[in-house]
């Protein structure tokens, strides 16, 4: 199923009303995410990266421009369950077991979806939670809950995966561990992915290319292609080539102040 659909943003502009006066958050942002690609969106707080992600989800309207997923408006794709979503907060329902939380999108979408349900044990083991199928979220650690959320985002076998700082609340060690696991999991399905993040290391390690947003209203400051082959070993974090790329992203981010 290797990523049947790309995501195309065309000249997206968006304003919010703040106390009655308009505040522009995005100004003519264009971005093309080819099918099966992994894009990291990075930028300072308030540059509109989360807004862009919500626009891709169809949960936020645009003032100008358009977004298409495989040529369709995102609402239609989302309502068929073909977009997987993970937030910074795992947002698990505390009364549902691990398996039931993973199955939640299927319940909401309706229909029996037997072959997708049959994949749940595999997904749970994919995120390293075998044996915890019947545990409740309250019995899990923070990192384990986030793994449940990742498994849940993949349960519909989506063509498109949107993640908003999924590891933002984890400590650095756990975060790096989750990055390694996410790459492994991602390679199995390779959905077209957009990852919103604050972490330069995380972005460079995971993505095919890093898009730096900045300014207010937000514009694309620059795009850094990441040429490493997959799977990327953890030793890559010590590679000089890796550091050249993180420096490049950092320079684009730092130029934001001026």
């Amino acid at each position: 199923m290797a990523g049947g659909r790309g995501i195309v943003f065309e000249e997206i502009s968006k304003q919010f009303l703040v106390r009655g006066s308009p505040l522009a958050v995005l100004d003519k942002v264009s971005l093309d995410c080819p099918p099966g690609s992994f894009t990291a969106l990075i930028g300072p707080s308030g540059c509109g990266k989360s807004t862009l992600l919500k626009i891709a989800l169809g949960l936020e309207t645009v003032d100008a421009g358009s977004v298409r997923i495989g040529g369709e408006p995102p609402d239609a794709v989302r309502q068929r369950g073909e977009i997987g979503i993970a937030f910074q907060d795992p947002a698990l329902l505390p009364w549902r077991s691990v398996s039931a939380n993973v199955a939640l999108p299927l319940d909401v979408l309706g229909g029996s979806r037997p072959e997708q349900r049959a994949r749940i044990p595999h997904l749970v083991s994919l995120v390293g939670l075998s044996g915890f199928e019947t545990a409740l979220p309250g019995e899990l650690s923070g990192g384990m809950r986030q793994r449940v959320a990742i498994a849940r985002s993949l349960v519909t076998a989506p063509d498109v995966l949107l993640m908003d700082e999924p590891f933002g609340a984890l400590d650095l060690i756990l975060r790096r561990q989750m990055n390694v696991e996410l790459q492994r999991i991602w390679m199995e399905q390779s959905p077209t992915t957009i990852l919103v993040t604050h972490g330069i290391d995380e972005a460079v390690y995971l993505a095919d290319r890093v898009v730096v947003l900045g300014g207010r209203p937000g514009v694309v400051k620059g795009i850094v292609d990441i040429p490493f082959d997959r799977p990327r070993p953890t030793t890559i974090f010590r590679d000089p080539a890796f550091h050249r790329l993180t420096d490049e992203v950092g320079a684009l981010l730092g130029g934001d102040e001026g």
């Binding site: 989800l57 949960l59 989302r78 309502q79 068929r80 369950g81 977009i83 979503i85 937030f87 907060d89 947002a91 329902l93 009364w95 939640l104 999108p105 319940d107 909401v108 979408l109 519909t156």
Partner: peptide, 25 residues
């Protein structure tokens, strides 16, 4: 939890789905 509601929306659930899967319990 507003995140749970957002999640429902993201999977195409309307107010009815939010009521059924989140609010009641």
């Amino acid at each position: 939890d507003p995140r749970s509601v957002e999640l429902m929306r993201a999977y195409g659930g309307g107010e009815g789905a939010v009521m059924r899967w989140v609010r009641l319990r």
